[in-house]
Simulated assay, not measured.
Amino acid sequence: MSYLIAVVALVGALCVVDLVLTLGVVRRLREHTKLLDALYEAVDLMGGPPAAGGRLGVGDVAGDFEVTTADGARLTRDLLPEGTVVAFLSPDCRGCHERLPAFASWAAGQNRSRVLAVVDDRAGDPTEMIATLRPVAQVIVDGAMSGAFGVQAYPTFLQVAAGGRLLASAPEISRLPAGAPA
């Protein structure tokens, strides 16, 4: 009987040690997440890395483009209104699907002419994203348009001035000046 009590006590002690170690790992992961968030903020405040390699930095102007929205309207870089938010999304991107509801909710409270969703049609079926975004944003289905803005990863959210000059870039809508809650 005492042997059984000793085994139960040992297993219980091992479980407690495992729990303490797991909580330590979770705490450490949270610290790393905060550090990575701070790094994102620092890079965004500095305008991101230099424009070399195709990525636009704050103040750079997007390349020329001429596209047609899902509603049939013609859009060019020079037709972008001041403060336009441009979201680059891809149907095969898990992060894009995770951020889609928050972006659509944010966009529903905005002037539709100042919200542009660019859905990459080179990978996956864009039908679901288009259906979600079309009521709240101008939707463009064109994978090549990411080149005009130097987008290298999905999702990417940009805020641009009239004429396509980059004002801000972020991996989430809430990190843009336009996306921050009032």
Rank of each mutant, 00 (worst) to 15 (best):
G48W: 01
L23S: 13
L158W: 03
L35G: 13
R99M: 15
G72R: 02
L100S: 06
R165K: 13
Q138H: 13
V17H: 07
G54V: 06
L80E: 03
L45V: 10
G59P: 01
W106A: 03
V25H: 11
T76G: 15
V7C: 13
F88G: 00
A137R: 00
V43W: 06
G54A: 07
P126D: 02
L133I: 08
A42R: 12
A170R: 04
R122V: 11
F65D: 01
G163F: 11
S113Y: 08
V115P: 00
A137N: 00
L158C: 11
C93K: 04
Y3C: 09
L56K: 01
V16N: 11
G24D: 05
S105N: 12
L116S: 00
Y40D: 07
A38G: 11
A108F: 10
R112S: 05
Q159V: 05
E172D: 09
V17T: 13
L29R: 15
P155K: 02
P135F: 09
V11S: 14
V25Y: 07
A153Y: 15
G95S: 09
G53F: 08
E66T: 11
A73M: 10
V141Y: 00
V58G: 03
M129F: 11
Q159W: 03
P181Y: 11
S174G: 14
G54P: 10
D125W: 05
I5W: 07
V61G: 00
L79Y: 02
A162P: 08
G57K: 08
I5T: 10
L80A: 02
A168I: 06
S174H: 09
Q110E: 15
A104M: 08
Y40M: 05
A137C: 12
M1F: 11
A161V: 05
D125K: 04
P126V: 04
A180G: 14
L45Y: 10
P91Q: 03
E82I: 07
T68W: 03
G47W: 07
L35N: 10
R114G: 03
V85L: 01
E41V: 15
A153F: 15
